[in-house]
Amino acid sequence: MTGEFPAVLVLVVITNFYILNTGRYVNSVRSIALQGCLLAVLPLPEALAGSPQALFLSAGTLIVKGILMPLILIRVIRSTDEFRVAQPFLGPVASVLVGFAILAAAFRAGALIPAPLRPHDGLMGAVGLATILTGMLIMVNRRKAVGQVIGFLILENGILILSLRISRGLPFVIEMAVLFDVLLAAMIFGGFIQSVHETFAHTDVSRMRKLKG
């Protein structure tokens, strides 16, 4: 198991489950920030092995996923009172159990992912797959747009883990990460616009003024 941190990958899975379980979007965003910081650790062995691009990938991940994206999301949530509490279709216990089934399935399937450059890395493929699938589960399980953005962020984190397993943090991966982050920003702004739209539909301040009579 050289070149990966099992403890970091285990913590990534635990943050997945925490987000599945929690009902508050603020808590979800905090764990997303934590997950971003954890992901920034993963390319470090490559950097030590003598490829400085990996260091850029690590720093970029930390700044974008650990700091910027969570800050934007927190602002979106703070600005709209309506989005504080998730109203998932599946309850927390059921979604955690489904997440557990996903995890078990990902560990069965993780060994099947071809990885010519890293033949013997244990957990990365499975954890990446589980994170992707958990992100999808969260996306289909949340009613509000913010929840979908959170699910998408987790899915994207899973893609990063998986790409680190398949290739080795090559510039291509950095480009892909940037590409996805742009897409993500679009998603977040979409979520923002949608949230403003929904807020005005439900808690219209000008209509409240009419109550005074």
């Binding site: 285990v10 899975v13 635990i14 489950f17 925490y18 379980n21 927390p92 216990v93 955690v96 159990l97 997440g99 557990f100 995890l103 078990a104």
Partner: peptide, 10 residues
Amino acid sequence: LALSFVLSGF
């Protein structure tokens, strides 16, 4: 308790 079950199972 479901989370503790998941921890053990993991």
